[in-house]
């Protein structure tokens, strides 16, 4: 089962939970917010970079997501998962960027085509992680995001559905089709 890689703190990480950190930030602690950034910036960046397939835009989206989260931290519902909240913010920002990109370029597809992610290029890539990442990049946006969140959050389908604002059944269908396409792309 894919672990929630970036969400679960490593063994050596401090035991302070997210709720306590948020309370500390609201009380004026800068260090607490630094800790939140340390915990989530990788995961948020990965969601953005997988969705947008552009490092610069992903950095902008990550920064904006943290900025919006910081500004709206007082509205964060106690008991909710911070990861789901910040992923939702980040995903909406990515959607905005994709639709802006679509408006500018006038493309039918909302995302930018990645020429290095084609099947012939995939065949040349030996490393499993590189091949898998390229295969994910080659997926359509809706499947790519579901797989990325599945990778980041594990089998928490309801959390994925919340982030994407989709029904649970749709998330499962998207994930199934995404996995089928991935398997096809990765098969020798």
């Amino acid at each position: 089962m894919p672990a929630a890689l970036a969400v679960e703190p490593p063994v050596a990480a401090p035991v302070v939970d997210d709720q306590a950190l948020i309370a500390a930030v609201l009380a004026g602690s800068s260090q607490a917010f630094e800790e939140i950034v340390t915990r989530y910036q990788r995961a948020v960046y990965n969601l953005a970079v997988r969705t947008l397939r552009d490092s610069n835009e992903a950095q902008d989206a990550t920064q904006e997501a943290f900025f919006k989260a910081y500004r709206a931290l007082h509205t964060f519902r106690p008991g909710a998962k911070f990861s789901t909240w910040i992923f939702t913010i980040c995903y909406r920002l990515c959607c905005d960027k994709l639709s802006k990109r679509k408006r500018i370029s006038g493309d039918e597809l909302p995302d930018r085509a990645d020429p290095s992610a084609g099947p012939e290029m995939l065949a040349e890539r030996s490393d499993e992680a590189v091949r898998l990442r390229a295969a994910i990049d080659a997926l359509p946006e809706k499947y790519r995001t579901v797989v990325t969140l599945y990778h980041l959050q594990g089998k928490q389908y309801d959390e994925i559905a919340t982030v994407l604002n989709l029904p649970l059944g749709t998330v499962k269908t998207h994930l199934f089709r995404a996995k089928e396409q991935l398997r096809k792309a990765l098969s020798p």
């Binding site: 890689l5 950034v37 990550t62 910081y70 992680a129």
Partner: peptide
Amino acid sequence: LDRMLAALPLEEPPAALRSRILTSTV
């Protein structure tokens, strides 16, 4: 596929991203 996904490491964000985030927030 699940095993491959579980083993897939996350991409490291650029080093400057953290300072960009902190400069725009706290």
